[in-house]
Each structure stands twice: as structure tokens, then as C-alpha cells.
Design a protein around this nucleic acid. Sequence first.
DNA 1: TTACTCACTTGCAAAATAAAAGTTACTAAC
DNA 2: GTTAGTAACTTTTATTTTGCAAGTGAGTAA
Lengths: 121, 121
Amino acid sequence: MKQNKTSISSKCKRSRCPVACMLDILGDKWTLLVVRDMFFGKHTFKELQQSMEKIPSNILADRLKRLQKEKIIDRTLYQERPRRYAYNLTQKGLDLKPVMQSLIAWSNKYNPDTYDMSKVK
Amino acid sequence: MKQNKTSISSKCKRSRCPVACMLDILGDKWTLLVVRDMFFGKHTFKELQQSMEKIPSNILADRLKRLQKEKIIDRTLYQERPRRYAYNLTQKGLDLKPVMQSLIAWSNKYNPDTYDMSKVK
DNA sequence: TTACTCACTTGCAAAATAAAAGTTACTAAC
DNA sequence: GTTAGTAACTTTTATTTTGCAAGTGAGTAA
């Protein structure tokens, strides 16, 4: 047990509120972009690094570790010699789809400059 | 016009992707907690400051300014002498409800330590 | 032997966040 | 009219996180 501030669960950093706990994991500018890319078929470090927002490689490495720790993605060796790894969404990650969809709908509704992503289905 | 990196809209900081643009506004640990509190009837600086995650007052002030700038909330003087202000969700803010709901559902599904928020309807 | 690629890691400056204390406008109590 | 108190912020300073550039290690290909 790490903290005991009148018992906040070990999996919840600030409170037991579902919104707060979700933000403890995904609340930053990059993590959901990595998840988005994986929904769109990007799986390797390089592919993720090349997407248009140009995530710094140290941040990408850090976020991939966090996402693995949270079991939102997993990493598998898909090729020995040379070793190559593929990141994939777990069921927990795939279940973020409704979050992605609603947030995309909101963005499209209020920011006409954003493009259509109807590929996410 | 601020930037012109082969034309990224002035409202989109990193790209025109709806996910990225949403994260440019709401992608941090606190902003959506403020929105959550307003969905639950908190309207004054003090009420927002007192919620259980204990947001630092400078961060709260900053986020309230950003949310106003983005027209997700507005600020009204509800009492002269002494001056008191109330923050309220605009329609744009209210339209974040599906995002909140899906994210709460995801959190509840995968983190059993999070509590029920069925009040958000 | 040299050049190149992928998947990271390291170092350092810049920016954002956190905690505490301070400010302004006003009311209420003594 | 002086002291105490409150709401809504702001300021200061220290700590943490981020961003950029460069570097590393395992392996391939020429």
C-alpha cells in the first residue's frame, strides 16, 4: 500500500472519482493521441513517432510504458533478428472507443477546422 | 494569423485532428475535473476549490480563464456588493456530457475502486 | 569496414505545476 | 473606526514535467 489518506485506493491517485482516476492515467496532451494512432493501425514505435503531431521520442517511450503498466496496450515481439516490437490495444484499450468517438463528435461539432475521422467505427 | 505550418487552423495547435484539438483544450489533469464539478452544481470559485482533489488555486484560476476563452463556460456576476461570480457551462460545455459519461463508464468498468456517479444523467 | 535502421535513452533548457502566502474588495462584530 | 473574516483571485518560489537534440545498442545490407 502506498498511501492512506483515509483510504484512497492504490489504483486511484487523487480520489475515487472515475473522472479523476481516468485523468490520472490519460490526462495529458499525448496519451490519447497514441491510443488514437493504435486505433488507426499504427503499431510500432517508429509509426507512432511519425504521426503528424510529432511526439518527442522520450515522451512516446514514457507513454508506451505507462499504457502497458495500465494494461491498455501490450507489447509483443513480432520479429526476432532484428528484434521488432508491436504495440496493440488490449480489450481495456479497445473499450476506449466510445470515449474517442464522443470526443471526436464534440470536436467536430464545435471546431469546424477539425477533419472527419469516420474511419473510427 | 498566428502560425502557418502549411496551414494549421488558428483554433488547432498541433494538427486538425479532432482528438488533438480537444486535447489542446482539455488535455490535462484538472480541466475536466472542473467541468465535472460544474455538471454537479458547483459554480463559485470557492466551491470548485473545495472539491476533494484539492486543485491549487492558481491552477483553478488559470483553467477557469481557459474554459471561458474556449466558451465552454461563462462567468456572471450574480451579486453586487460584495461582488460574487458564478461560473456556468455553456451549451458547448453541456455537450461534453457524452464524453464524461463514456469516460465514467470506462473507469467504472476497469477500476472497481471508483465510485458510482449515476447522478450524471 | 562503413553506413543505415529501429527502438529506444540521456542530458539539459524551458515550461507547467504545486504549495504557500499575499492582495483586494467588501461585510460584520466589537 | 479598528479588528476580524470571507470570496476570489494573484504572486512567489520550488519542484516536476515537457521538449528538443543528440546519443546508444543490436542488428542488417553493401
